[in-house]
Simulated scan of single mutants.
Amino acid sequence: MDKNLKLLCSDIDGTLLDANRDIAIETVAAVSKLSREFPIILASSRMPSAMYYLQEKLGRLNSPLVCYNGGLVLDSNGICLQSHTVSLDFLATVIEHQKKYAYNISTYCTDTWRTESEDYWTIREIRSTRVEPILVPLEDHIAILKAIDEQPHKIMCMGTPEALDDLIAILEKKHGDEAHFYRSKDTYLEISAKNIDKSTALEHLIKEYYNLNLENVIAFGDNFNDVTMIKNVGLGVAVANATQEVKDVADYISEFTNKEHAVARAIEQFLL
């Protein structure tokens, strides 16, 4: 065991979850061998409610969370430590563009998911995250957010690659570098506040909450939004199914995929 490693941080989808998009019993078993005082932080593009049930399965409910790729950071009591949002003017441009194309627009504000209908895309997300959205007509979306004085931590658009490519071009032209675009797949576009990432959020969280530095962290990831975190921590682990960009900055590349319990195996190798 590397005694300098005092905290574990993991991405969720494509990293921690197995073929059934769930926490495998192998992962639960590995985590159970760690001391209860050994912090485990989940860092994801997901909303809080889509992470709580995973914390519970790991036996680490009431741990801090890095949500929306760093757009929202919560402490162990669910109190907001950091919050970065996208403007309603930006959202208005997305809604206007959507009129030309048939794609799903979902907004995530703190711990509420809003979308217009329960379509193909929405059903896929419900299955993946086990969270139900609030259905709101697109034309009412901005008025509702204004009324409660909220802005989106994340806007997710799901549709054809051509529609999303065109949307990015429009947004960059009209709003410049106001927001960050992340394509987990050609058909998924996640939009969040500019200049945030998991690494920055994690660094602030663990310094304030645990008096630790990134060099004390073992972190796991698979995709573009994990690159800075994997690069900056003490031991950055890329799962075997990770993108090349993640593997290029990792300290260790697992020979196992998420479906082969890469995180559990690395816990056994490096922490036990």
Rank of each mutant, 00 (worst) to 15 (best):
I126Q: 07
T129S: 01
E132D: 01
E132K: 06
I134M: 03
L135A: 00
P137Q: 12
P137S: 13
E139M: 09
D140V: 06
D140L: 13
D140Q: 15
H141D: 13
H141Q: 15
I144N: 09
L145T: 06
L145Q: 15
I148P: 00
I148T: 04
I148M: 05
Q151Y: 03
P152V: 03
P152Q: 10
P152R: 12
H153I: 09
I155A: 03
C157P: 00
T160Y: 04
T160V: 02
E162R: 11
A163P: 03
L164G: 02
L164Q: 09
D166E: 15
D166P: 00
D166H: 11
L167W: 09
L167F: 03
A169V: 12
I170Y: 02
E172Y: 02
K173W: 01
K173V: 01
K173L: 13
G176H: 09
F181Y: 15
F181R: 09
D186P: 14
T187M: 08
Y188V: 14
L189W: 07
L189Q: 08
I191V: 14
I191R: 04
S192V: 14
A193D: 06
K194T: 05
K194V: 07
K194E: 05
N195D: 15
I196R: 06
I196A: 01
D197Q: 04
T200V: 13
A201F: 05
A201T: 08
L205I: 05
K207H: 08
K207N: 14
E208N: 04
Y209G: 00
Y209S: 13
Y209N: 05
Y210T: 04
Y210L: 14
N211L: 02
L212S: 09
L212N: 11
L212A: 12
N213S: 15
E215Q: 14
N216K: 10
A219L: 12
A219F: 07
A219R: 07
F220P: 08
V227D: 01
M229Y: 07
M229I: 08
K231Q: 14
N232R: 14
A238F: 04
V239P: 02
A240P: 01
N241T: 01
N241S: 11
E245G: 05
K247P: 01
D251V: 02
I253K: 01
E255A: 10
F256N: 11
T257K: 13
N258K: 05
K259L: 04
K259M: 13
K259E: 14
H261Y: 04
A262N: 07
V263A: 11
A264H: 03
A264G: 04
A264C: 11
A266G: 00
I267Q: 10
I267N: 08
E268G: 02
Q269H: 08
Q269E: 15
F270N: 10
F270I: 09
